[in-house]
Design a protein around this nucleic acid. Structure first.
Lengths: 192, 192
DNA sequence: CGATTCTTTGAAAACAGTCAATCTGTGTGG
DNA sequence: CCACACAGATTGACTGTTTTCAAAGAATCG
């Protein structure tokens, strides 16, 4: 499945064959079974993970035991905890697999080295970061300006491939509403 | 007020005196009066703005005329629309001054040149971007996991200097609630 | 002081959450 | 292959929270 990673890199920048090999060689493939953790609250996150197959989520669990999903990641997405990676502090997030999954892990050290030695990699990484930021700004905007129904419709538009792939209870959590509310909204939409 | 910008740069990285001068020389100071726009919906944003004095907000206006505040920026913060800057498309946001304000503007071209020629500047810029991303992830988390009262308390903790500086109606908008709701929450908190 | 803007309050309506029960589909073991 | 268990989705009744609209009360600025 490392081929997926290589394809992704080729699309993102004009790496030389040699550079591609260096990057791919630095990655470690790791399988994560459904329901298995990639990161557990309290642990320090020391990698950058690229998903080659499957689906993961980042979430927190509050005092009442309710889960709050911050992010999903499927094939060709990056996932991790930048906060913990940067500070070295234990993470407040959990990351686990929603399906049987495979990720390419780049250790913090390998990652930093690649950034220094391959300028195209550094640029790619920053472009990804910028995109992530823009996406999260957009998501904030949905929270402050849309109704529950609009948030769901917006989700269907922006991430249609996720809508069919994820349990609805998780979509509800991602949108900041209960599974019951989402179920009622879906019913309402069908009747329109 | 350009001195504020220079101080900020000194704190963020070890620039040489020469580098500092180059960066500062690239900046254009612009005054923005209270209620005056720095960016208007439909215009293309072509700068990066650093606030040396005053306070601004980024917001949208929906079909019903309601304003939704995405972000504030006070002294030593950056503000702008990365989306429009990157794509060259007209912005969907408005930016205006909440107080009489002064910003240092770096044109897209000047900014890109500085990134190439001064590597410390490039690193600084990326560190700022990463921080912005982490802050916005945190904010998303507040939206999906906190009650209205908790969101306000969290705001007071994280941005106490803004709480006293901004009209409450704007804080309410930033938190995704109505001014009336925030007013009631404040009353409730006082009685505790 | 007067005008304007911001905040507070009240009452009703709309909306979303909670809890408990039922329904549906999937996969497993006998 | 069937029966059962299990997880996820739906529904109903109820509760609690937030919005809406309208009006009154502070605060601020020229």
């Amino acid at each position: 499945m490392i081929a997926v990673f290589k394809e992704y890199l080729k699309e993102k920048a004009n790496y030389t064959e040699q550079e591609l090999d260096i990057i791919v060689a630095a990655a470690v493939i790791r399988k994560v079974r459904r329901r298995q953790y990639l990161l557990q609250q309290g642990d320090v996150w020391k990698h950058n993970a690229f998903v080659t197959k499957g689906c993961l989520r980042t979430y927190t669990v509050d005092e009442k035991g309710a889960e709050h999903i911050i992010n999903f990641a499927v094939e060709n997405w990056w996932i991790g905890d930048r906060e913990s990676l940067r500070t070295g502090e234990p993470s407040i997030y959990n990351i686990d697999a929603i399906e049987d999954t495979e990720v390419a892990l780049l250790s913090k050290e390998a990652y930093d080295t690649l950034c220094v030695e391959i300028s195209a990699f550094n640029d790619m990484v920053n472009a990804i970061l910028e995109k992530s930021f823009r996406v999260s700004q957009h998501r904030i905007h949905t929270f402050i300006s849309l109704t529950a129904e609009e948030k769901y419709r917006n989700f269907l538009e922006r991430l249609p491939h996720l809508a069919t792939r994820l349990p609805q209870s998780m979509i509800a959590s991602y949108l900041g509403m209960t599974a019951e509310t989402l179920s009622r909204i879906r019913k309402l939409i069908v009747h329109k």
